[in-house]
């Protein structure tokens, strides 16, 4: 039986009169890896940031693991959950940023265990043990006492992934995780993400890495101008795209 862990309905987001999201509906099942592709400015990142409440939607609804983050009232205006509920939902959705955003004044280990200690009231010892395991998962056990500035870009992003996993979130959101990296070292981050996909972590990945979308995603979504234009399995979308917009995009990308 499949369980829907993320449900988005008719999501609209305006930035000062510019419509970034124009009625996006999407549901993601537990264990799925969904790749979101599309041209720059198509609203991919905005969609992800809305799920994490880093951007506030103008209208529409988002439900994460049975908790309603936002819903629309009768006037079709977005009504948000309480701050406390928003924080709970945020801790249930791990976010990975393009520019890592690690805390520079903390060691890698502390970066990973900071939120569990503060939010789950875990003892420092337990949290540190769990964090060490996560750093092992991303292949960076030996860097636990290093500070972010001592790491390469790829290593920083892997620590960020471990930090995102630390709260054991239902959904992991990746916002162009390899776009700030040298092409040569994107591989190490992609490999970690592939491992997570194999472990059936629920993941939403905004990416320009077509190879990742093709190989690791269960579903691929193509967005343009704030809308989902087409979606399907990687085979469907990459080999037999239906819309001309997708064909055009793929031709330019591949």
């Amino acid at each position: 039986m499949t369980e829907t862990v993320l449900e988005i309905k008719d999501l609209i987001k305006d930035f000062n009169g510019v419509r970034a999201l124009n009625g996006v509906s999407l549901s993601v099942e537990k264990g799925q890896t969904v790749a979101i592709i599309g041209p720059s400015g198509s609203g991919k990142s905005t969609l992800l940031r809305c799920i994490n409440a880093l951007e506030r939607a103008t209208a529409g609804s988002i439900t994460v693991h049975g908790r309603t983050l936002v819903s629309s009232n009768e006037q079709n205006q977005a009504v948000y959950a309480s701050e406390k509920e928003i924080r709970t939902i945020r801790s249930d959705t791990g976010m990975i940023f393009q520019h890592f955003n690690l805390f520079p004044h903390m060691t890698c280990l502390k970066n990973v265990c900071y939120a569990p200690v503060k939010l789950k009231k875990q003892s420092k010892k337990n949290a540190a043990q769990a964090a060490e395991k996560l750093l092992e998962t991303v292949g960076l056990s030996d860097k636990k006492n290093a500070y972010p500035e001592q790491l390469s870009g790829g290593q920083k992003q892997r620590v960020a992934i471990a930090r995102g996993l630390a709260m054991n979130p239902t959904v992991m959101l990746f916002d162009e995780p390899t776009s700030a990296l040298d092409p040569e070292i994107t591989g190490e981050v992609i490999n970690v993400m592939k491992t997570l996909a194999k472990e059936h972590r629920t993941m939403l990945v905004v990416t320009h890495e077509m190879a990742f979308a093709r190989e690791a995603a269960d579903r691929v979504i193509f967005m343009d101008q704030g809308k989902i234009i087409e979606e399907g399995t990687p085979e469907e979308l990459f080999q037999n795209p239906k819309s001309d917009r997708v064909k055009e995009f793929l031709k330019a990308m591949l």
Binding site: L54, D92, F97, N101, F103
Partner: peptide
């Protein structure tokens, strides 16, 4: 990005500011 990273983990405003 530092605020966003902290908020995205579910940390509150006070913890984000002081931690």
């Amino acid at each position: 990005g530092q605020y966003e990273a902290a908020y995205s983990l579910g940390l509150g405003k006070t913890t984000t500011m002081f931690g």
